[in-house]
């Protein structure tokens, strides 16, 4: 992990990984979509309306998965102070927020015809809404400081505190009466979803995960490049600030790669 933390090494590794994840996603996306929207049978009760789950469930899983990624980055950033971990968490946040939003919206679209309401304040829906606000808070706090290191640290602490929301989201449908149905796939006694619907769902889950990895790696690289530009800029303006001096002293720039 220490080796990975070297931004240059990371950049080389990421450059080798992301074309493959992107290719795999582009390959699986049409397969998953056609399988889910055309081939898979309609549900015995909901009919074709159940197909929204092929987007809703992968989005909701990604929403919690990305937050777990941010929590891990936050721990690494706080304990080992790896700048890469901070960048990785911040780069993942907008993606997670976007998919939380997708999960909330698709859930509402499904809820209106099925439940009879767009929204209820039951434990599952409320805890996912809180996750959405956690993402927004994390992003806002991270960028609220002039010193990026302090912002990163504050945001990491917020991310850690927010980690309690993840088990609450997962088990809310078991601990309390909710309008949202209990888990269909990840349950101790096996899935309660027919295999011919489960498989396209799993393909869509893979597509969403691959999309995340691709965009995440690119976002990290963009942020690393941004940091480097800032460092170089700071160095240059430090040099220009004292033209009289014979030789430009080595800039006291931050230790970015």
């Amino acid at each position: 992990m220490h080796r990975l933390a070297n931004p240059r090494r990371f950049r080389r590794l990421a450059d080798r990984v992301w074309p493959w994840t992107l290719a795999a996603m582009l390959l699986l996306l049409p397969v998953g979509l056609v399988w889910a929207l055309v081939v898979a049978p309609p549900d015995y009760q909901q009919g074709d309306a159940a197909r929204i789950m092929y987007v809703h469930v992968p989005a909701a899983w990604l929403a919690t998965f990305v937050y777990a990624v941010i929590v891990v980055s936050a721990v690494v950033a706080l304990v080992w102070r790896h700048p890469l971990a901070e960048v990785a968490g911040r780069a993942a946040a907008p993606i997670g927020a976007a998919f939380t939003f997708v999960a909330l919206v698709t859930g509402a679209i499904w809820g209106k015809p099925m439940w009879g309401t767009w929204w209820v304040w039951d434990a599952r829906l409320t805890s996912v809404l809180i996750l959405f606000f956690l993402y927004l808070g994390y992003i806002a706090l991270h960028d609220a400081f002039d010193d990026p290191q302090r912002g990163g640290r504050a945001a990491a602490i917020l991310a850690l505190v927010g980690a309690v929301d993840l088990p609450i989201i997962k088990f809310s449908v078991e601990w309390w009466n909710t309008l949202h149905q209990p888990a269909s796939v990840l349950r101790l006694d096996g899935p309660t979803i027919a295999p011919e619907m489960l498989w396209p769902l799993l393909v869509m889950v893979a597509v969403f995960k691959l999309y995340f990895v691709t965009v995440w790696l690119l976002a990290i690289q963009t942020r690393l490049a941004e940091r480097r530009i800032h460092t170089l800029w700071a160095r240059r303006s430090a040099v220009e600030a004292r033209p009289a001096a014979g030789s430009p002293s080595p800039a006291p720039a931050s230790p970015a790669g």
Binding site: P41, P42, D43, Y44, Q45, Q46, A50, M53, M114, W115, G116, T117, V120, L179, Q181, P182, A183, S184, R187, T192, I193, A194, E196, M197
Partner: peptide, 18 residues
């Protein structure tokens, strides 16, 4: 004054249900 349907966690095609 409000009736909401609660869906359960079972998803299956109609033929399987029958």
């Amino acid at each position: 004054d409000e009736v909401l349907a609660k869906h359960d966690e079972r998803y299956m095609p109609k033929e399987v249900a029958d």
